[in-house]
Design a protein around this nucleic acid. Sequence first.
DNA 1: GGCCACATGTAATATGTTACATGATTGT
DNA 2: ACAATCATGTAACATATTACATGTGGCC
Lengths: 177, 177
Amino acid sequence: MSTLSPTARVILGLLALGDRTGYEMKQTIDRSTRFFWSASYGQIYPELRRLEESGLVVSRDEPRGGVQRRAFELTAAGRAELESWLVADGPDRFEIRDEGLLRLFFGELVGEEDVLRLVRRRQEWFREVAEHFRGIGQEVFGDEDWPPVLHYGIELMEWNARWFDAHERRLTQDDPD
Amino acid sequence: MSTLSPTARVILGLLALGDRTGYEMKQTIDRSTRFFWSASYGQIYPELRRLEESGLVVSRDEPRGGVQRRAFELTAAGRAELESWLVADGPDRFEIRDEGLLRLFFGELVGEEDVLRLVRRRQEWFREVAEHFRGIGQEVFGDEDWPPVLHYGIELMEWNARWFDAHERRLTQDDPD
DNA sequence: GGCCACATGTAATATGTTACATGATTGT
DNA sequence: ACAATCATGTAACATATTACATGTGGCC
């Protein structure tokens, strides 16, 4: 019994939400889960094959005109697997890789102005990403309710921007210059 | 000219901050950068060898009694490489992998009570991690000033806990049950 | 004719974790 | 005697990105 990778579970989830092809899943991922769980074609297609081999999904060819197209759907086993993951109690993987924080961590090795430049770039970047997320929200959901995780993403980016605002103030205030 | 991986740069940075052996670096990483940039022995030791091959660090044997021990230090080239990274303008890698958010994303596939259980577990978990970070701060820095990134980590965990508090309220309020 | 969106897939490479092997020293 | 800490390292495996190859169909 090989435990499924989180990426495999994303795929099962996307099938449950209505996606049918690898291409579609990649698009959904880029518009929604990418921020907290990304995946590339190089993962998606091989994973779909593995999932079919283990009987959690089935596929059939459904070309659109001359464009080849393979549509997947969950089997009963796949749906069961998905649901047992969704309600499980186990610890969730939580990882951050943030090169900017790394540079801030090593800030004492460079001049104050360099740290300030870094801090200001981050404020800007986080605000841009927040705006980008809002754009996606408008585009995909318009005036309907936006999904909680989209709000989470926007608010997290804004929190970060504010944290770096505050950090800039700390740096400029207690500095004799 | 092979561009250095972020992990290689962490190593250069830790050398600049005073670490000397792979073991020491691993410890520092586990106590400080792990939260936003982790690394295992399986990365550290091979990376040190590569860095020495490219002339950015040098090592010599410095056994402590009978315990073998290899102490590294930055070369001029290594220090230059480190500093040029620290002041560079390029975009910083920023990645999150959060399985809990993934489950929240798929929340509509399960019952409300299951989502609520997930949300409450996250509140708890984020508060525990915040406490864990505070513990590290006390242990390593005591009453001295704590580094900005440590505050960042604590505050980020607390922000998360509060976000999930608020989300719980949203779920229980506009629910007819 | 040319570009973009749709669509699938692989190979090479990069990155990272886990488990294991080895052994000295310190403290209980 | 034994556990914990100091210390180095590798092999197997897992995970993920990038670049490439290939082709259709719709639109301007």
